[in-house]
Design a protein around this nucleic acid. Structure first.
Lengths: 193, 193
DNA sequence: CGCTGCGACGTACAGCGTACGTAGCTGGAT
DNA sequence: ATCCAGCTACGTACGCTGTACGTCGCAGCG
């Protein structure tokens, strides 16, 4: 985990890990069947370390906001490790816990059964999408910090060039909250109609 | 592209590509500065190949549905190649064109300027999230096709075990449309109030 | 005492990206 | 006609990767 957070997933090699542990390279294989399994385990660890949120009200919206923000906070604290979660599918208790929490909360909002599962999945998709994109733009290692847009041809892309400033600016806080509120609005309306 | 689609991004090596082209490995470097640049170019190609949607009405909702479905259809046609888009940020004309189309359509719905950009980004995040997840579960190469959930402890996870069947089933069509309609509902409400 | 199993370790192999040096050809300048 | 610059192709080599395989020593048990 230390290696991942300091130098990124790409820096993880069996030789590096073994050296960091002061052990022989192949000794690792007595504890882990393959490198993939090692990274799977690291991903589980990251997922398990997401801090449980606390909230004072009983409003499902506040719970949803708090839960989403807890995930995002965790991602921002471990940006290089978080990418491991994007592609992996978690099947154990570790992956089930946040789902259980979400289902519990959605029950408050009147969502049950199949629909609740769909809502959870839509939410997870949005979260994974924004956070993956946000982490990809953090300046540390490879991320583009500032405006990646050269002057745009206004004839070919009139709308884009009209909002060129906004396209080049990234206010991740704002954008995250915007998308989150969008989802909440949608769910409010869904549960009513 | 042939190599990516048949054997996945992981099978792409400079030696393989060169062999496929009947050329020497290092000859590739006369046309491409690095392997990363090669994959960047492949990603651009994939993005450029997304088929423009056609729609008969002027309703922004129908346009949004058609656009989203066009992206998904493309992703499903080239599942192994599509993952290249998840992490990359496109800055040229190729990346701008879909944005321009989206902005044009959002104008119909009354979204302009900064807000329109935020809507586009939220939409892109959702699309990238669902499609990444969907592609990760396609049975071809590495995907888990059927229920990955072992029997769940009903005491620890009562809600999850109540919907165990749904958790194990993936109806990607349904789920995609569900999330899409959720976003549309949210935007409708947003533009009204 | 001897055996069995497990953890640690070194060696080796096939493959990777690419830096570097070296050819051959081709078009323009002299 | 001659020469040279620049482009493309290619082979070799370096340092890295994941891991299959064989060996060694030690701990626990019959």
């Amino acid at each position: 985990m230390r290696l991942i957070e300091h130098e990124g997933v790409g820096a993880v090699s069996m030789r590096r890990v073994a050296a960091e542990l002061g052990a022989g390279t192949m000794s690792l294989y007595n504890h882990v069947p393959s490198k993939i399994a090692l990274l799977d385990y690291a991903a589980e660890q990251i997922m398990a370390d997401i801090e449980p949120y606390t909230v004072e009200t009983d409003d499902w919206r506040d719970h949803m906001r708090a839960h989403a923000r807890a995930v995002r906070d965790h991602a921002r604290k471990h940006p290089r490790a978080f990418v491991l979660l994007a592609t992996r599918r978690m099947s154990g208790d570790v992956g089930l816990r946040p789902i259980e929490v979400a289902l519990m909360n959605l029950e408050r909002a009147g969502f049950k059964g199949e629909v609740a599962v769909r809502v959870v999945r839509a939410m997870v998709s949005y979260l994974l999408g924004t956070l993956t994109r946000e982490m990809a733009t953090t300046p540390e290692l490879g991320g583009v910090a500032l405006s990646p847009y050269q002057p745009i041809d206004p004839e070919a892309f009139p709308r884009s060039s009209a909002v060129l400033d906004e396209l080049g600016r990234y206010d991740h806080d704002m954008e995250f909250e915007f998308g989150l509120e969008l989802m909440i609005k949608a769910l409010e309306q869904y549960s009513e109609g």
